[in-house]
Design a protein around this nucleic acid. Structure first.
Lengths: 113, 113
DNA sequence: TGACTATATCACTATATCGTTATATAGTCA
DNA sequence: TGACTATATAACGATATAGTGATATAGTCA
């Protein structure tokens, strides 16, 4: 492997991590789970989504190792184990806010000329 | 809007930011652009991808405000304007490395028992 | 045991988007 | 002007995946 060349499988790995967060519903689930452990029923109520859909997304997050599952009788309790998720969202939010600020400034500048 | 409820359009905005980085080819282009401004031909050579494909991805990155374009005659020179991209990749890479370490440790533990 | 409940999974449709070929656009230079 | 070049765009097939209704699975409790 050449220096400064990037391994395609590494790229795919990184991309798949971002793909995980590229769905609004998964972001919503993770945000809700930020308050602490919750079972599927509670998540369905909190997100307003279909039970099958919530379960599917939880399965995807579980496979990726972002959340963990604690079974208790009929219930499945999920919680976030990968806190770096929140760091990523913070970076994105800050950047988006800054971008909006810049646009606002640009508009103001145009108006006053 | 309720407190602690998240606006769906905000979720979509954040998700779209992650979606931008959820493609190996775009990550490759951004990584190459990390070394400095480059035109499309150079990027085609550096990535080994099809010209139409590189142009399309550059267009997407441009629309998102992640890169900027400086036209010079026939050439289009692109450069990264949103450095937060690299911060995001760093967080993901660190986390992936850590996850691999944990798996390695787990395997080692099993072996020695 | 049998009715009931919570969750996971299956099968399916709808949609988004990647990569590609062909072509349009626009700048350069003889 | 006309041939040539660099980039952007259009059109299209292939693939991935989100959301949904139906159903399987497995635990609970009378």
């Amino acid at each position: 492997m050449e220096r400064n060349e990037i391994d395609d499988s590494a790229l795919e790995l990184i991309a798949s991590r971002f793909r995980l967060l590229a769905e609004p519903m998964r972001l919503k689930i993770l945000h809700v789970l930020g308050d602490g452990e919750m079972n599927v029923g509670e998540l369905v109520a909190a997100t307003g989504a279909n039970q099958a859909n919530v379960s599917k997304h939880l399965g995807i997050l579980l496979d990726a190792g972002v959340v963990s599952r604690r079974k208790d009788g009929l219930r499945s309790n999920y919680s976030v184990t990968d806190e770096s998720i929140f760091a990523l969202c913070d970076v994105v939010c800050s950047r988006l806010e800054r971008q909006l600020d810049l646009h606002r400034e640009a508009l103001a500048t145009i108006r006053q000329t």
